[in-house]
Simulated assay, not measured.
Amino acid sequence: MDERELIARRAAQELHDGELVNLGFGMPTQASNYLPEGVNLTFHSENGIFGVGPKPKTSESDADVTNAGTEPVTLLPGAAIMDLCTSLGAMRRGTLDVTILGALEVDQLGNISNWAVNRNGLWWPGIGGAMDLTYGTKKVIACLAHADKKGNSKILKKVTLPKTGANCVSTIITDKAVFDVGDNVLILREAAPGVTVEDIRAITEADFIIADDFHEMVL
């Protein structure tokens, strides 16, 4: 499987029965395809839906029913639709149990940067609802490639890009490893199949310790 599928499959294992879950743009939305059998939960989309269902067939899609990334979705029985302000308010006040967010950088303090790139001296495209999600959600899971295209670590001692949220990330899932965020140090819980602790150390700037129950990812 490719790296994005590996991350999405592993992220889905963090979800549990009865939770209210937000999935961020891009790769995190794929986690809904790999829910463990028997897990029933409610997906939220920040543009104003509780009760997001599976992606419809192209012939059955409705341009007025999309997620926040403008991808067509369906509505499950009992779904609730609301305006954006109400949805953002629910995100800020702690209604959601889990959010899975893509990231550009994360660090050992639990900081996440996921919105800003500098082009021609300007930061863009804008922070959006991720700021509200990192503030109000009980558990924030960050998903990202472990290193950039040049091999530089994206799991840092301290993020260098503008922060989306501070001290908010609970779990980090990459194509190489799963970390929990501890007290100013990461805790290595799992390694991807075929990846050793030494491999992970070689591409991780952040400090980390190894969990007592460290093991290989089960996908």
Rank of each mutant, 00 (worst) to 15 (best):
D132R: 09
H215K: 13
G48A: 06
D132S: 14
A191E: 06
A68L: 05
R119K: 13
K154H: 07
G110Y: 03
G110R: 01
M91G: 05
W115N: 06
I172W: 04
E105D: 12
G24D: 13
K154W: 03
M1S: 12
G89C: 14
T58E: 14
T66P: 06
V197M: 04
D180R: 10
W124K: 12
T164I: 08
K150F: 09
T29Y: 08
S32C: 02
E198Y: 02
Q30P: 00
E216K: 03
C143M: 15
V65C: 14
K158S: 15
A145P: 14
F25I: 13
E71K: 12
L122Y: 12
V106L: 11
N120S: 11
T29C: 10
M217Q: 05
Y135V: 12
K55N: 07
L23A: 02
R10Q: 10
I81V: 15
R92E: 15
L88M: 15
L109Q: 12
G128N: 10
G78S: 07
W115R: 11
R92V: 13
I200A: 01
G24I: 08
A206P: 05
I81Y: 03
P54V: 05
D148R: 04
F25G: 03
I173Y: 08
N111M: 06
R4F: 12
I210N: 00
R9T: 01
T164G: 10
L35V: 02
P72Q: 05
I100K: 08
I112R: 11
G126V: 09
I210Y: 04
L161D: 04
D199Y: 07
T134H: 12
S45K: 04
S32I: 05
D213N: 13
L161Y: 14
M82T: 07
L109K: 12
S59L: 03
R9P: 00
T196A: 04
G165R: 02
P125S: 10
K158R: 15
V73N: 09
A11E: 01
L75R: 06
E216D: 05
R4P: 01
A206K: 06
I209N: 01
N22R: 11
T70Y: 10
D207M: 06
N152Q: 13
D97P: 06
E216H: 04
G69E: 13
Q13H: 03
I49G: 01
E190K: 08
A191I: 01
P162W: 10
I112V: 11
G94L: 11
V197W: 08
E5L: 00
K55L: 04
V185L: 08
L6T: 04
T204V: 03
V181L: 02
H44E: 07
L122R: 15
E3Q: 03
L101S: 11
R189Y: 00
L23N: 09
A202D: 09
L6G: 07
A12C: 00
E198C: 00
G110E: 03
V73K: 07
A63Q: 06
P193A: 10
T58W: 13
R9L: 05
V65R: 00
I209D: 01
G194R: 13
F43K: 07
P125A: 11
G26H: 08
N152L: 05
T171L: 06
D2V: 07
A145S: 11
K149W: 13
I210K: 01
D132I: 02
L101W: 12
V197D: 08
H146C: 11
G182H: 00
T95E: 15
T164V: 04
R119L: 14
E37M: 04
A130Y: 15
